[in-house]
Design a protein around this nucleic acid. Structure first.
Lengths: 250, 250
DNA sequence: TGTATTCGTTATGTATACAATAGCGGGGAG
DNA sequence: CTCCCCGCTATTGTATACATAACGAATACA
């Protein structure tokens, strides 16, 4: 009992899944590269069975791809894959916003959303925005999107949105990070915040179509800016997940 | 070597996954019921490791739910879950149609779609439609939706649509089957076919918004009719997947 | 010298053994 | 008679052993 040190608070499968996902997203594992189970066993500390379960989950998540002859490889994404994923999530979030608006949301339920809005307003007051403030923004923005998604009260939809967010840069924090290096970053943040304001207003007034439209526009903005940011890669080489994007233009 | 008869043409994992999915969808396993691994091993013929991989995949598919204390249970769906799933898929297919329209599709690529259209036209000519013809319709309709999805040329989107179709009644064939018992079945099929015709026209003329709108309307029609069909359950008790729907109104 | 075939090694798919936990039933006490 | 506690059993999570298939290298033959 002194020899084996096992953390019983978390399953080996989850541990392996987290570790491997981190390795993929951090670029330790190159896209197209075959993942060695044995190597994964060594780096994660779990044994083969939990590692395999983690690999299956990561494949379903979309980060890995099964190889016909056996095993898994890290998936590579084209720039279009990324922008499609963002638009996809925007469409889904639009549906969520519409559901929230049509089905009605109490003032109390809307409160967390307004809190995020106010907190971000506070952050955006400083020009230019500090690094710390930007970090807070990323958190608050992610929270805003998560809460909005929940307001749809539709488990299948929430589930799909979560899935769509699993791809690199497709999560609310993911693409904001990518845009941080742009000179127009602050303006983008301000516009995005305006979108947030409008969607709350639309939900409050039960304007489903308007709520949906603004969320889709929100995603369009993100797509446009991500494209822009990817043009000057020099500014954001620090982002590890960038390694997952195929450089060759299709 | 003579003793053990193993089919090498298909992996045990896939075999177990297919068998278990069939058991779930056919109602052999009741929703809320904990799935016994041992029992699954017996019914599928695979050993525990492949069975567990299959269970993980089915959980990711949305048919199973992990139990915190361990193991999996069959998920139960509310009527709203189902209709939301259909609308969800409709939204996704709308996006696919828009992508196809905006990005352009050659006449050659549109051919399979038109073939389905023509074949279905042929089927719908007979009144009332025969059981055989209806069965053909289900196949052709599924093919139409699959081809349309492919025309988006967006792997992430295609993937998501496939995922959304995994839930009971959310697939193109699934909800059509459910509606078959309705007296208005033939009219519904005719209207649906008109939708198909319009989406092809919209894609040909590169009218993205119109293509998207009609696919969403298509889903709305499906939702409405599924609701209707579920009202008179007596007509369609033959559908096994029905067991997965919670009877209690939320 | 190039190509093809064979052998060996390695990694994956599968099966099973082991360990730990959660649920359940029985027994005892209040 | 009821409630609580203890122990047992059954099932899951984990580890590992075994078999098989694929990939690579080396050698032999053309």
């Amino acid at each position: 009992m002194a020899e084996r040190e096992v953390d019983r608070s978390i399953s080996q499968t989850v541990k392996a899944q987290l570790a491997l996902r981190d390795q993929i997203l951090s670029g330790s594992l190159r896209p197209g590269e075959r993942i060695s189970e044995l190597q994964a066993v060594e780096t994660t500390g779990a044994s083969r069975t939990p590692v395999r379960m983690a690999l299956v989950r990561l494949e379903e998540e979309g980060l890995l791809e099964g190889i016909p002859s056996g095993g898994f490889m890290v998936k590579a994404f084209s720039e279009r894959d990324i922008s499609d994923s963002i638009e996809l999530r925007g469409t889904l979030e639009g549906l969520a916003a519409r559901f929230a608006a049509e089905r009605g949301v109490s003032a109390r339920e809307l409160e967390p959303l307004k809190e995020c809005l106010g907190a971000i307003d506070e952050l955006l007051r400083q020009v230019p925005i500090s690094v710390d403030a930007f970090s807070s923004y990323v958190t608050l923005n992610a929270r805003f999107h998560a809460v909005l998604t929940e307001l749809s009260r539709s488990p299948p939809l929430i589930r799909q949105i979560d899935r769509a967010s699993a791809l690199p840069f497709a999560s609310p924090s993911g693409f904001v990070m990518a845009q941080s290096a742009l000179p127009e970053a602050q303006q983008i943040l301000i516009i995005g915040q305006e979108h947030h304001r409008v969607v709350i207003d639309a939900i409050e007034n039960r304007e489903g179509a308007r709520a949906e439209a603004i969320m889709r526009e929100h995603a369009r903005l993100a797509v446009r800016n991500l494209r822009l940011a990817l043009r000057n890669r020099t500014h954001l080489d620090l982002l590890p997940a960038l390694a997952l994007i195929k450089t060759a233009t299709d």
